Amino acid sequence: FYPDTATGKVKEFIEAYRKMFGVDPNLQSTSGYDGAMAFAFYAGLAGKNLTTESLIAAMESGKVFEDIFGGAPVSFSKDNHLGVSAATIGQIKNGRWTTIARNQSYKAEK
């Protein structure tokens, strides 16, 4: 995303970030935000009395976390702790990154 073309929740995130820090967000700040939001999603599923066990159960529930930036969906199960098995493919066109494919699996087919 770019600040001049962002819409919806991404635009709101950029505006809030600018207001708080005085600069536009970068890859590191959006990655950190995603990590915190994924934790908050699963902690919310775990309930008010958050414990290690309730967080693990919530994460292994198979419920899917989807970020605001269009990244690959995140989910876990009892036998799969990878989180994601797909990627977004980008390419630079006219000096800007553009998404050319979303959710491209990199997990081997069985």
Rank of each mutant, 00 (worst) to 15 (best):
E60D: 11
V74K: 01
G83Q: 02
V23P: 01
Y33V: 02
D79N: 14
I68N: 10
T88N: 12
G71F: 04
L27V: 13
Q104E: 14
A57H: 02
I92V: 15
I14F: 15
G71H: 08
T98A: 12
D34H: 01
G90H: 01
G35S: 09
K9E: 15
F13Y: 15
G83D: 09
E60N: 13
G83V: 04
F65H: 05
S29N: 03
A57P: 06
F39I: 04
V23K: 15
G83E: 01
E12K: 12
D34F: 01
L45I: 01
E12G: 05
G70W: 09
E66F: 00
A6L: 00
S54R: 08
G83C: 09
G90K: 07
L50Q: 03
W97K: 05
F41P: 00
S31Q: 12
H81M: 10
N94G: 09
F39H: 02
K19T: 08
G90S: 06
V64E: 11
A108L: 13
F65M: 04
F13K: 06
A38D: 04
F76R: 03
K78I: 03
D34N: 13
D79C: 08
K107Q: 15
T52F: 07
K78T: 13
N94H: 10
A36H: 06
A57V: 11
K110Q: 10
M37T: 03
L55H: 04
V84D: 07
D79F: 07
N49S: 14
I100N: 07
N26S: 04
E12C: 02
A72H: 03
M37A: 04
N49G: 10
G35Q: 02
R102N: 11
F76D: 09
M20L: 14
T5V: 15
G47H: 06
A72V: 07
G47D: 01
V23C: 04
A57Q: 12
G35M: 07
A57K: 15
D67F: 03
T7C: 05
I56W: 00
T5K: 11
K63I: 00
G95M: 10
S31W: 01
Y106V: 06
D24K: 05
K63G: 00
D34V: 09
F21E: 10
A40K: 14
D4I: 05
A86I: 03
Q28W: 09
T99L: 05
F65A: 06
M59R: 08
K19N: 10
A86T: 15
